[in-house]
Amino acid sequence: MLDWLPENISTYGMKIDFLFYLIYYITNIIFLLVAGFMIFFMIKYRYKEGRKSEYTHGNNKLELIWTSATTIGVLIIALVSAPAWKEIKIDLPEPDIIVQVTAEQFNWRMLYPGPDNVFGTADDLEIENELNVPVDKVIHIKLLSDDVIHSFFIPNLRLKQDAVPGREIIVWFEAMKTGRYEIPCAELCGFGHSGMLGLLYVHSSEDYEAWVNENWPES
């Protein structure tokens, strides 16, 4: 089942995958235990004429044990999850590159600040549905929306964030591997939601340099 996760190319993706595996194993063990007991009881205590069941109304000690055990269990899961969440969505690292992404029905508009590194000037570069970034660099995405709620989803980067009209939401990633990846929209945004798709190109630093030289306006 685990092979089905798309290849991870982001620095923090490993942490998400690790948590996923962790919870996967914990829940599997619990499931097997519960199912095992259930099947065992079902076979062992199947109906026999004339036999009576054990007459008991419960056991407070057992209640206490499994209540505290599950409480501790889920608390641990929450506690190990917290740092990853903090790293990914709360404490953003300083950016090397900032790209402004505006979602609209049904496109991603990627805006680069251009040579002056300031958004909203004449030398900005806008490309539809194509995000170009260098590998091993911290990228900030300034996420906006023009119309309805969309969700910026890059499966390989383990990144998802809704783009909300009226808000400017910043998310970050650092890609570890070059290549071409898909950026679907993950939040229902209208009849064109299915098929709203951008592409992410992660370049080596030389290639990125070349791409910038070729495409960015002169300063």
Binding site: K15, I16, L19, I23, T27, V34, V74, S81
Partner: peptide, 23 residues
Amino acid sequence: FVIGGLSGIFMASTPVDIFIHDT
């Protein structure tokens, strides 16, 4: 219900939910 409850744990973990939310 056990299966459904256990899959809820995945989504309750915020970092994992980043990936599986809306899937």
